[in-house]
Amino acid sequence: MKLITVAGPPSSGKTSVILKLIECMNCAKGSIGVVKFDCLTSFDNLSYEEAGIPVQTGFSGKICPDHYFVSNIEDAVQWGVESGFELLITESAGLCNRCSPYIRGILAVCVIDNLSGVNTPRKIGPMLKFADIVVVTKGDIVSQAEREVFAFNIRQVNSAAKVIFVNGITGQGAFILAKYLQQAVEIQSLTDTKLRFTTPAAVCSYCTGETKIGAPYQMGMMKKMEFKNL
């Protein structure tokens, strides 16, 4: 089975891109599965079910989505292998701009949209920086110049990635994306593979449910801001 990980900020068009991508892949119905990692709620499973695509949804809730991803991805792969899929796609919504649920040797796709502001590529960090392919959506409603500036800013952060414009509504661009994704490698398990980037550190008192403010309650791994005299 092949595995592809897809990440991107909320509402950037990940689900639409994946749906159009699957249409282009010309695979037998039911041979591509999706695992959606979300935070609190998700409605994307409905879109997948409607398209007849087997889907599993998991909610990270109070756990950091990246930690949740890494502790469940192995089981996801196992589900995919047991279901006999040719291809498994994981979709995760990045929240803190530090999310990068990418694994070494596994094709990583980042989806961002043109409407999020031209400097967004320079702000979202590892999620973009460690991706192999950056898919840009909603390009049909901004000017050519803005698309070019956006792509330029992506290359500033990740000069190695391929940048592909995909229209999530008409599917324009999904064909060439599908062509790229044919490079994904066959796997049976992810045991002993490594993440491309560390997940956010999260071992302080607030991670474990502390709500009170003040120095006595701050324990574990803390990072303090420096306030200078202006």
Binding site: N114, L115, V118, D140, I141, S143, E146, V149
Partner: peptide, 8 residues
């Protein structure tokens, strides 16, 4: 195209 706008 007709639908394109500037957003910057």
């Amino acid at each position: 195209s007709q639908n394109m706008n500037f957003v910057m």
